[in-house]
Write a protein that binds this DNA or RNA. Sequence first.
RNA 1: GGCCUGUUGGUGAAGUGGCUUAACACACUGCCCUCUCAAGGCAGCAUUCACGGAUUCGAAUUCCGUACAGGCUACCA
Length: 552
Amino acid sequence: MTEKERIELAELLFPNIKKTREYYEEKYPERNLPDGAMVTRYGPSPTGSVHLGNLFSAFCDMVYAKQSNGVFFLRIEDTDQKRAVEGGIENITGVLKGFDITPNEGYTFGGEYGPYKQSERTEIYQTYIKDLIIKGYAYPCFMTEEEQNNIKEEQAINKTKIGIYGMYAVDRDLSLEEIKEKLENKEEYVIRLKSPGNPNKQIEVVDCIKGKMKFPEHDMDTVLLKKDGTPTYHFAHVIDDHLMHTTHVIRGDEWVSSLPLHIELFEILGFTPPKYAHIAPITIKDQETGAIRKLSKRKDPWAGAKFYEESGIPIEALHLYLATIANTNFEEWYLNNQDKTINDFTFSFDKQAIGGTSFDEAKLNNLCKTYFSRKSGEEVYNETLIYTEKFDKDYNKLLKENKDDMIQFLSIEKDGPRPRKDIAKYSDVKEEFSYAIDSMFEKEFYSKYEGDKVYDVDLITEYINNINLDTTNEEWFNQTKEFAVKHGYAEKPKDYKKNPDSYKGHVGDICEAARVMITGRTKSPDLFSIMKILGKDRIKERIELYKKYSNR
RNA sequence: GGCCUGUUGGUGAAGUGGCUUAACACACUGCCCUCUCAAGGCAGCAUUCACGGAUUCGAAUUCCGUACAGGCUACCA
């Protein structure tokens, strides 16, 4: 076909496209950003659900853009109407917001480079396709599904590469007359790339994470525009990321095999390609089969985004976990920098895992504990209030009624270099601090205490009457030891162990008895702190309660 | 079938030819500290980097094969 014929063809195919590529190039000029600023994007398709992998990639996008004073935008990739789910887009924006992953541009976030929804960009894609047809890099293909399947079957038998390329791309060299005829017969068509690639040549691509990769040049006549005039992912990606001036395409590594195509498209269109960073998928070892697989929402509760909110895992702790799988040196850094937050850490692609990252629930749990240990009692109180507001209204009410007490209890052993690490989620607070609220304690006391040991109520009553709570922890313990000795108990557990016949027990036994009566359990944070907060009157009430229980 | 990518302990991993008798963290086990728990301290946990060959004075690190895993091979993203 001559150029003149190609122009005629382009007009025939896209009579309504009046704008030119120059128009768009001018409309979306270079971004005015400081040196080194990264422009990243998250491009979900609105299939409704968001899972950890999506969240992870969006997290990376955000973090790299943020630390370089760049732009992180949200683009809805809804070129496939079949996959669209009602409310899917709202769900995505909702989840992002819930997880504190906020784009600073894009769909529902505004910006100069929109529209940020691919279904609203059809005219743009078609403008560039029209141009490609004129240049001879694209052509209409009228092959039916059946014809294509036949070719694939034949290729499978001959054990050659499967697809539409070279000699198999029969509509490549259709004459203008032939095309006109098919159009008049109302034959349906797609627009395919007329790939100039030579598969015997190698191309080398440098990925920010994976490093150098070699591929044969792309030579498939890949579909660019579908029958309905909408673009395929590949074409939309190239056009959008060029016009929106994305500098770094951060995406899942299921895309690496289409890299040669994307590079080829950028070249043909005369665009400079962005840098690519392909991130490893989050995997898990299947409990039943032992096989390594991708996270599955059906089998793994933690794959779905909702799980974290419902079970009370703090968003910030999840960010911490995402950061540790994003950059392998983050974990150690965070541990050694008690006073720093994620925002103080500089992420880099070469510290990003290359192979699949296995989801580690135990590590997440530990990270959550560390997170809570660094929060003050008041902060934990306030955050738990927000959580229970939504997921445990009854407890929320109790928390509000017992605010001052709760904050004091939550603050026990928080000072110093080794703060307690006993809660991992907001939902743990209720259980861990069951002894904190009197009205709840009564109920909990009976159901939770399962020991069969019966403690001496009179002894502990006397003990409580005798000690002074208005003192220091050290002084309190001295008093306790004195009391123990007076009643025939050893001052130190070791003494008792050496001569068990000489004593009734040791100081720890006194504490244990008091602890059970006061908290309803054999394990608790520092007993003295708890006693001090409760005060003698409430302690005595609890001893009465214990009496009732043990005589039952 | 073809084309890519990956494979270091129970887990996440550090490691870019000699400083590695393979870091660190999580998990687990034991001991210590201790009024219980949590935390913390110490110690243990891969004689070896999927396997086989090659290059080299020297390889977890380079090259070639094999196995396994994952991805792509759609008018899905």
